[in-house]
């Protein structure tokens, strides 16, 4: 059986980020299920704030091209999405918007988002676990970018106490939602491997 290739990253680059911890834990669960996982940090793909003038003069940043190609080498992409003021972070939105501008000749618009399956989750210090940000991010990915997204999402509320020393999730409900997400994500990525 072929192992599905899955790219995992977090929408936060801050040291100690709970979403990066969530990304790490999702990656671990996927590896345990025999997926071939690539973990990256958006800190290694810096991009200036999107600006149409800059795009016209200099094109998209090299990091956007690199990340697009990397996504295209994977059958699945998991993104841990912090919620800022009920919505996506500027960092993540900026990255998605730059990527949306890239397609090689012969490719559809926003090519990085086509032909693969996406899953999202969130960790938040609030009690709602970032659900409002996830809903908005679904609209951006599905309606804005034409990406295919599995319905299952993992949410980690009260994130400061959510992970144990090994980085595993303590909360049973979060763990159950994570299991359901991983299960569906694996079957969808395997079907594309």
């Amino acid at each position: 059986m072929r192992h599905p290739r899955i790219l995992v990253f977090s929408g936060s680059i801050r040291g100690g980020s709970y979403n990066t911890q969530l990304a790490a834990f999702v990656a671990k669960q996927l590896v345990l299920a025999d997926a071939d996982v690539t973990r990256i940090s958006l800190a290694d793909y810096p991009m200036p704030l999107y600006d149409g003038d800059q795009e016209r003069e200099k094109g998209a940043p090299e990091s956007a091209h690199k990340l697009k190609r990397l996504m295209q080498e994977h059958q699945g992409v998991f993104i841990a999405c912090p919620e800022y003021n009920t919505a996506i972070t500027p960092l993540l939105k900026n990255t998605l918007d730059w990527l949306s501008r890239l397609n090689d000749p012969g490719e559809p618009a926003a090519a990085a988002f086509k032909g693969r399956i996406f899953a999202i989750g969130a960790a938040s210090t609030g009690a709602l676990g970032g659900i409002r940000g996830l809903i908005g991010t679904r609209t951006i990915l599905e309606v804005g970018l034409g990406a295919f997204l599995i319905p299952e999402m993992v949410m980690v509320p009260n994130a400061a106490d959510a992970f144990d020393d090994k980085g595993d999730l303590r909360n049973e409900r979060s763990m159950a939602s994570l299991d359901a997400m991983v299960k569906r994500f694996l079957s969808e990525t395997r079907a594309r491997a």
Binding site: L49, Y50, D51, Y84, N85, A87, I88, T89, P90, K93, N94, L96, D97, S100, A110, G136, T139, I140, V143, G144, L145
Partner: peptide
Amino acid sequence: EYNAGVTPLLKNVIDWIS
């Protein structure tokens, strides 16, 4: 509207000011 959402420029400004 960028990809059915707010521009990164504007969201960044709103978040910092918050």
